[in-house]
Design a protein around this nucleic acid. Sequence first.
DNA 1: TTCCTGCTAG
DNA 2: CTAGCGGGAA
Length: 290
Amino acid sequence: MGALWPEGAEPLDEFVSRLLRVGHELYRDLPWRYIDDPYAVLVSEIMLQQTQVTRVGRFWERFLEAFPTLDALAAAAVPDVLERWQGLGYNRRALALKRTADQCAADGRGRLPDSYEGLLALPGIGPATAAGVMAFAHQVPGVYVETNVRAVFLHELFPHEDKVSDKMLEPLVAAAAFHPAAAADPRRWYYGLLDYGAHLKATGVNPTRRSASYSRQSVFEGSRRQKRAWIVRRVLAAPEGVAGAAGRADLDRAEAEAARDGVDEALFASIVDDLVTEGFFRREGALLIP
DNA sequence: TTCCTGCTAG
DNA sequence: CTAGCGGGAA
């Protein structure tokens, strides 16, 4: 591991101890930290995917209030889960989390896998989320690469390089995470990296702009994405179902009021097809039912 | 305006 | 590898 550390850089020992100290100074006391329930940790990790900390807080607490355990989530109805998710964004995450609960409840064990590979195989759980759950719920060190960790490593070890790929960062993130001083307390190590990364972004130019995986998002206003969200909300609000034609007319009117292009039947049908395929709601004849 | 503790399908 | 996916706080 140590051999992979960059020549001429600050020694790994000093790097790790300095960042542990900085992380401690910048520590954010968030409600999902230093808890042992892997399910509660997973819910926070899923919610935090591409979502700012300030937004997640109340959603995490209300979600756990409604679905306190993996079994409770598995027993819940999809529309109720989506309802709890409204306002948080990326509704797909709620469906994936629900499927994860369903799979775990059905496989006989009734709980989440406690290995990185086991977690990675579940819906909505990728490399970052799996590594996050291992570190934060199980105190198992791993390679946890997300935007704040990127910010720290780019700022510290690639201060002038551009287009730095995750493949370049991963061995370094691993070398640090498995260093005895960090591996002794993976929670503290990664909480510190997250808080330091967030601090860097808040106080200067975002270092992750120099990441190869950095890309700006397309505009939301008037997007298909916005219409998807509108349709999901509309159907959830009508437990008895919504007639497709009426839904399209409502959306068309809403778009007109926002001074945007109308929504023709082909576009509406295309979006509804996607949503039905993804499992947001079902179609019975001309009716869209939660 | 920026961009958020990413994941997935094509 | 890329496009698509929510919504709002600062």
